[in-house]
Structures are given as structure tokens and as C-alpha cells.
Write a protein that binds this DNA or RNA. Structure first.
Length: 265
DNA sequence: ATGGTGGCTTAGCCA
């Protein structure tokens, strides 16, 4: 099974890019974040035409929004928590019935958290910290088997997940309160599947700001997008790619797709 | 220290 996670930053605007991605690497399942499309306007027909017979999505006007596109049948998970008492389309999940066995797939868009890393004066940062804590508590109190968590988690946890550890320690996405909470969430049940393939002392990014004339030259990236799997799936991990080239496509998202291949062990 | 760019709800948020 070939799985992709991608913060597409407007699904409707970047449908042609998704089409090219699908033509290039033919994924079986695609998890999107920041679709920015209300459900009645979701482009189901165009996605069916790309080969995704099974769609699960939750969007709203203007912001946020998550979607799972699949060639294999999806069984949506209902009764998911309402994080931080906000119905703001940041999490969906489904059981994916792949031929080599089913997996439970969670697609997250964690709040970015604003600029000021102080929960006392920045409600967005308070929201972000609480969201991650609630997610950790929820996964801690349930059975997690053959489960995958993906998405834009908006936190770069490791030193080499950012271009400069020292310079970003006080920058939202890499502050200790965030990275510690994210690690606690992951450790409830998961292995960092991207770092399964790339050693922790090698730089690895999935996002480069729009506010940089030449993203490639400055290469001031961060690893904000993640794929976690439960240990029972580790033997099935067969390959991982961060599709850096997509950052140079016409009208790109500021995030690039991450691809994970899982094979029956 | 500041401002840099992009998308949506076309003005001001949000990232």
C-alpha cells in the first residue's frame, strides 16, 4: 500500500497538482490537510476520475479541512473526540480495507499556534498545546493496533527537523513545550516512521515558508508533517520519500507530500 | 528587530 500525506493548502486551487502527483506516483491512499473546502463543494467527481473510489472528508469555509482519498474501501470512524471543544475539521479517521490487511488511519491537522509561544497571552498557542495533550490522552486510553497517524502536526520535534535548532527554540513549532508534548503523544503507541528511514542526525524537512525568495537556496525548512505507525506495522514499512521537487511545481503548497510504502511482511 | 508570501471570506484573518 502506498500512502501519501500532504498539506495541500487549498484542494480546489491545487487539483492539477494532485492530479500530477497521482499520475507520477500512483498512491493508493492520500491524506490531505488544509483542503479549505466546505463539504457541499468537495470535488468528489474529479477525485473519482483520479481513481479514488472512496472518499472521506470534513471541511469548512476558508480554513482547515481534512480528507482521505482511497482506492480501497474506507470505513469512517465515527464518535471521534471533539478536540478543545471546537468543531473545526482538524481530524478524520477511517479503517482502510487494503488487500494485504486493514489498517486504522488517522489524518490530523494540528493548530499552527500563532507567533507568540506563551499560552498565557496567545490563545492559539494554548489551543495547540491543549490539542496535543488531548490527543495524547485519547490514544493512551485505547487499544492501538495496525494504526497509522499522519498529518500536518505543525511541530518539528527533533533537532534536525529544523534548519537551526538553536535559532528556532523560541519559534512556534520547535519550542520545548510543543516538542515534549508531541513526543509524549507519539510515545503512547507509535513509531516515527519517517525517521525509521532517515537517521535522527540527518536534516529532514517537509515545509519551506512562502516568505523566502529562494526556498531551495536558503533551505530553511522544518519537518512539520509526520507519519507514525504502531510497532506491529514496522515490519511492513518498505520505503519512504519526501517529495521535495513538488515545492518547485507551479503555484506550490508550502508543504510537500510524504510517501510511505507498506508491504505485507 | 522587521518583514517577507500566499489563500480565502476581498479585508482582514490565518498560516
Amino acid at each position: 500500500m502506498r500512502l501519501v500525506t500532504w498539506n495541500i493548502n487549498s484542494l480546489r486551487l491545487r487539483l492539477p497538482l494532485l492530479e500530477k502527483l497521482v499520475a507520477d506516483i500512483s498512491p493508493d491512499v492520500v491524506c490531505l490537510q488544509e483542503t479549505k473546502v466546505p463539504d457541499p463543494l468537495f470535488p468528489s467527481e474529479a477525485l473519482h476520475a483520479m481513481g479514488f473510489a472512496h472518499l472521506h472528508f470534513q471541511g469548512m469555509k476558508g480554513y482547515n479541512g481534512v480528507a482521505i482519498l482511497s482506492r480501497h474501501p474506507l470505513e469512517p470512524l465515527t464518535n471521534l473526540p471533539v478536540w478543545y471543544e471546537k468543531e473545526d475539521c482538524r481530524h478524520i479517521a477511517a479503517r482502510v480495507h487494503a488487500p494485504q490487511g486493514s489498517v486504522e488511519l488517522h489524518d490530523f491537522y494540528v493548530p499552527a499556534g500563532g507567533d507568540e509561544p506563551d499560552p498565557a497571552i496567545n490563545p492559539k498557542f494554548a489551543h495547540k498545546l491543549a490539542f496535543v495533550e488531548e490527543a495524547a490522552q485519547w490514544f493512551a486510553q485505547r487499544e492501538n493496533t495496525r494504526t497509522i497517524v499522519v498529518g500536518d502536526l505543525n511541530i518539528a520535534p527533533l533537532e534536525h527537523d529544523v534548519w537551526s535548532h538553536k535559532q528556532l527554540l523560541k519559534i512556534v513549532s520547535h519550542t520545548p513545550p510543543e516538542t515534549e508534548r508531541l513526543e509524549r503523544w507519539r510515545q503512547t503507541a507509535f513509531v516515527d516512521a519517517m525517521r525509521h528511514f532517515v537517521p535522527a542526525d540527518e536534516k529532514l524537512y517537509t515545509w519551506w515558508s512562502y516568505r523566502n525568495r529562494d526556498w531551495k537556496k536558503s533551505d530553511r525548512g522544518r519537518r512539520l508533517d509526520h507519519i507514525w505507525v504502531t510497532p506491529d506495522l514496522v515490519p511492513e514499512l518498505s520505503a519512504m520519500q519526501v517529495l521535495r521537487d513538488v515545492r518547485d511545481w507551479a503555484s506550490p503548497s508550502d508543504h510537500v507530500p510524504v510517501v510511505m510504502d507498506l508491504a505485507a511482511s
